[in-house]
Amino acid sequence: MTSHQFEDENNHRWQRLEEVIDAVETKQPHEDIERLPTLFRQICHDLSIAQHRLYDSAIIDRLNRLAIAGYRTLERRLSGGWDRLAHLILREFPQTVRQEKKLFWFNTLLFWAPFFFFAIWTPHDPEWAMRLLGPEGMVSMESMYGSHTSPQDYMREEFGSNFMMFAFYIYNNVGIDLRTFAGGLLAGIGTLFIVLFNGAHIGAATGYVHHACNPHTFYSFVAGHSAPELMGVVISGMAGMRLGLSLIHPGPHDRRTSLVLGGRRALLLILGACILTSIAAVIEGFWSANPMSPWIKYTFGAIVWSLTIAYLGFCGRRSHAA
């Protein structure tokens, strides 16, 4: 059978599939839509035959194009939408954090060790912290938490500036989370550096407050949003390290497969971290600067810390009944 005969004989089927695919693409009803899988299988068969018999490249190209289009149409799936997001937040994300225990403790250490070092060391020897913060950083620290301030001051005048700060925290902090994740692809070194630096910088700021500002103002400001924000930093570090480890220690898989699998897990972690950091941005934008008794803020902060830990520690655990 020559190419032309083959084409003449089967052309009607190919056109049928083309029509069905067009109908699906343009979301129009088509009588044969139920037959799409059958038509697709036939195309695959025809393509194999055409390839095997070395038919004209025009025919092979056309069948190849149809097979790809058919495959894409069949494979099109609506994303899960809100259900999927709820599943991610309530189950997959906290479960993954618990499964990656070693990475969690590693990043916790990576962040909190430099934090505590600088927070405790700075009041005795503020030189390093001053270097880290830079003159601008010190000025802004003093204007926010300086010794002349009290926790009950209005820190921002109006809703507008609250919203602006919220937007800034999303832009800046979630952006840092995403970079921490991406840095994992540099064999984890980018992530290591960002998490360490973050810990050192926040630690230096805390230490500097003890050295030159009013710690009461500082702690009552950060109490509310510290839990989700700092957990977000640690977990985006986990996401980056997951990616980096898949690259440098592929385990039983080849490196490419290991990266793909690690990437999927890392994506779960970074999405969760971004959600935590966004929650922190809402709290920091609209709550933390309010003039209220510091004890209210400390209580609120304690509640948020317990909720965060309970969420990560217990959410999505299978009940014994299930």
Partner: peptide
């Protein structure tokens, strides 16, 4: 102004990533 400035930052964040 602050609201619009914030909106611009959010726009840049989402557009960028």
């Amino acid at each position: 102004e602050n609201v619009w400035e914030g909106a611009l930052l959010l726009f840049m964040f989402f557009f960028n990533w």
